[in-house]
Design a protein around this nucleic acid. Sequence first.
RNA 1: GCUGGCGUAGCUCAAUCGGUAGAGCACCUGUUUUGUAAACAGGGGGUCGUGGGUUCGAUUCCCACCGUCAGCUCCA
Length: 672
Amino acid sequence: MTLVTTNDTNTPATGPTAKSVLEAQGKFTPDIIAVRVDLGGTKKLVDLITPLPEGVAFEPVRLDHPDALWLIRHSSSHVMADAVQRLFPGTKVAFGPATENGFYYDYDRPGGAFTEDDLRRIEQTMSEIVATDLPFTREEVTPAQAREILERTDETYKLEHLERLAASGVQISLYRHGGWTDLCEGPHVPSTRFLKAFQLTTVAGAYWRGDERNPMLQRIYGTAFANDKALKAHLKQIEEAKKRDHRKLGKELDLVGFHPWAPASPFFLPRGAQIYTALMDYVRALYVRFGYHEVVTPQIFDRELFTTSGHLPAYADNMFLAATSENIDEVVEHLSKEQLSSKGEIERALREGIRFGVKPMNCPGHALMFAMQRRSYRELPLRIADFGRLHRFERSGVTQGMTRVRTFCQDDAHVFCTLDQVRQEIESFIDLVYTVYRDFGFSDVRVVIATRPEERLGDDAIWDRAEQALFEGVRAKGLDHSTAPGEGAFYGPKIEFHLKDALGRSWQLGTMQCDFNLPERFDLHYVGDDNSQHRPVMLHRAILGSIERFFAILIEHTAGAFPTWIAPEQIALLTVSEKFEDYAREVQSHLIERGVRVTSDLGKDKLGAKIRNARLMRVPYLAVIGEKEVEGRGLAIRSRDEDKDLGFIPLDEVVARLANEARAPSLRGPAA
RNA sequence: GCUGGCGUAGCUCAAUCGGUAGAGCACCUGUUUUGUAAACAGGGGGUCGUGGGUUCGAUUCCCACCGUCAGCUCCA
């Protein structure tokens, strides 16, 4: 849950505190650290020293309740700030909230960044503060009173925040423990003795108020739990998650590589490429069922295309432009002829003179393709799929493994349809998306509808229609969803399907975007049944999203143990000794002919070593070949997923078993 | 892009408080012919991320750049 404060009600709370009520009822116990009140549907946490809103119902929150973590962590951030200001005088504080996994506090420290050693020292001082068992107290004050205190302590960031709070007219409150005071809305634990298990984890820069035009502060992250055991468990879990990191496994499993000469651009090694193409082939198979047509379109276009689509004006900074020698000559000619010499003029001439751009999206090309032929309403909905490679220049600090790259390919498609068909297309797409996520075993899917951003194309009436269509489609399918206001694409709102990676970071994979703008910009039309021209609607959609990103999530989700239908090798043939090489080769040919992906280890290693190596590569089935197998015309199979030795199996049975598992669950025939 | 960390063999990592570097795995060769998570021996492999600077001498100290990691900002 999110922290909701008493201030959100905008009504000064004057009632008794939860503690006094509980004590009067004889129900108070020392492990109660807060209460949860229900404010007409919104649950919020109120600590024991804050007056409750009049006549509100509440339930106690005990130390072992998950919600208690919000108080523990928020209070930990106060204690950390106290410790920091004791150790580093002159340091100013900014914001210090609890977060989903811990807490942080932002500092403006005259001496610059904190080091690892500093963190340990701060932890030490925090422990000392906690040991003195200081109660947290709350004081409601006027803006003037708060201002006086913050001016005295020269807390300029807090002062700035205070002025905003004062302007909005909310009740100002101060929280203290010992001699340390913070402008804070609470809630807090009763005393520092509840802060038994905390650890400072990292230090990083963060802009004041999250705006990159503002100065950068130093943020110290930490985490805290009700007890040491829970903290240890959390740290252990992070260690485990690191083992699944796709960057680590991608390297270990020979899936992917990188080179400084192609920053943020993965090289898919043979095993990785096998999976990569398997992912595309899988989506292709579904496209046949769902009525898509795959096309292949150009990589590089004249800038006219991106000017028309709106990409160049809006996102030039994120595009790769492509200059040719001939083009450079033209630009130079222009510069000298016009006698351009100021920096601004030259920059402009260069930017506008480079003729080609590498496509960052497939949609403008698809708009051109739609317009290449006379279109009838009978062709709609026309679903055009494209696995074209896209390039986007991502700023250096944002790239990350395979999840955020500069070159990638999407399982991209555009649906050209009539307004009336939009609803049906949305619903059918949702069916397709969930078919795919089920096949991969993803269950924790979060659906978000992202609405119009500040910077956008098209008028509001069009946006109203588009947003409405998305909401209706999602509701019709009965999906739980949330709204992300202002997060839509510049040409239209979108439905986003999010999944979490092993480290708990959430990624958008699938998306469906409703676009009334591009058809307008490209003047697209079709002939209706009334024999007149109509404007189609364009739906942008992807299921896996970027194949690169999906691959990364899949690695982390499976810890590298890919299901047989997607695994780079489905079975590994391991000979007991070189004497059985001939039979192994025969089996290998037999399997290859039947479409099985097979790898063989026929070398001089001992069997134990071969098994170890194949297991480390997470091959789903290991087949041992020795004297018994040669004589019986079979294989001794060991299953990765069942984690056991299946014993001797005749070759034909092995083939049958693999043939069934070689297809995605949704593509397996009823007979199989 | 910003703040901070990191960059030594294909991989995982040592070492040198300034005197040009080692291990395990991997690779190659040989011996062993092997039955369910690592046989044994030998060998090759590094301009210590790149470029400058300081120094008699730089992998080590300083600067810049590149890459990468965490976070911030951003993600059509």
